[in-house]
């Protein structure tokens, strides 16, 4: 009886991808150094990314390494996560690895890469629950945003001052305690008073759509994975009310 040595061109078992039995990665690069960069991003391998990027930089210019290695790899990670083949921790370590690589390339380039825009993120005054914010940070950075991470327990004043200073396309807030979420409303009032109508996406276990809809600028962020899409819309000129219309309805 005939035997088939390789079924790859007969059928693909898409159902096995992500379960460790097969790989769903669809990107590759013929150049072995670039392939290593891709692999490091896809594997979230922060230990080896620096060596891989340096090796690639020996023969390629930094923009190529960024676009065809780091960003391409990260886009693939996002795709795999969207499709349920990758899980949250993988997305985060990949983003960490990519940023490390980016750092090296930017140094070589002599300047920082032009980012899509700046987003300020923070966890509410009085709150230390910053996991949601950390996820938002990783996803925004992975999508090419410059993230000004104000950290946790950030006083209202500081958020308002940072907005003045950095002129972000979007501000985010995370709150997990019913006692701390009230800071969002105060931030909104202060910004509006300064006629600063920047979209203010608020999320976290304590807040709800009803609560966030109760003040100006507020857009409810249900899941961290929405943040990059919202930022894209903000960059494309959607106002806070248009964002609310689009994402909260």
């Amino acid at each position: 009886m005939a035997t088939v040595a390789n079924y790859a061109n007969i059928f693909v078992r898409y159902d096995l991808i992500g379960s460790g039995e097969a790989k769903g990665v669809k990107v590759s690069n013929k150049d072995s150094a670039m392939q290593k960069v891709l692999d490091c991003v896809l594997e979230g391998d922060s230990d080896n990314i620096a060596a891989a990027v340096n090796e690639a930089l020996a023969s390629k210019d930094p923009m190529t390494v960024i676009n065809d290695g780091l960003i391409r790899g990260m886009n693939e990670v996002s795709r795999l996560w969207d499709e349920g083949e990758y899980y949250l921790p993988q997305a985060i370590v990949a983003s960490d690895a990519m940023l490390q690589g980016l750092d090296i390339c930017e140094k070589k380039l002599g300047k920082a890469l032009e980012k899509k825009g700046t987003v300020i993120t923070h966890t509410a005054e009085g709150d230390i629950h910053d996991l949601g914010q950390k996820i938002v940070n990783a996803l925004l950075r992975a999508n090419g945003y410059n993230v000004v991470d104000l950290g946790k327990d950030v006083p209202v004043d500081e958020v308002v001052a940072a907005v003045k200073e950095h002129k972000p396309v979007m501000v985010t807030g995370t709150a997990l305690m019913t006692t701390t979420m009230t800071a969002f409303e105060r931030i909104s009032k202060r910004l509006v008073k300064d006629s600063n109508y920047v979209p203010f996406v608020c999320g976290g276990g304590a807040v709800s759509l009803e609560y966030v809809s109760g003040y100006e600028l507020g857009i409810f962020g249900k899941d961290a994975s929405e943040a990059p899409g919202m930022a894209n819309d903000a960059v494309n000129g959607l106002s806070w009310s248009q964002l609310r219309e689009k994402w909260n309805n």
Partner: peptide, 11 residues
């Protein structure tokens, strides 16, 4: 006990 962040408490 109501606020977790030290900065807010100080404030």
């Amino acid at each position: 006990l109501a606020y977790a962040g030290e900065r807010k408490k100080k404030l």
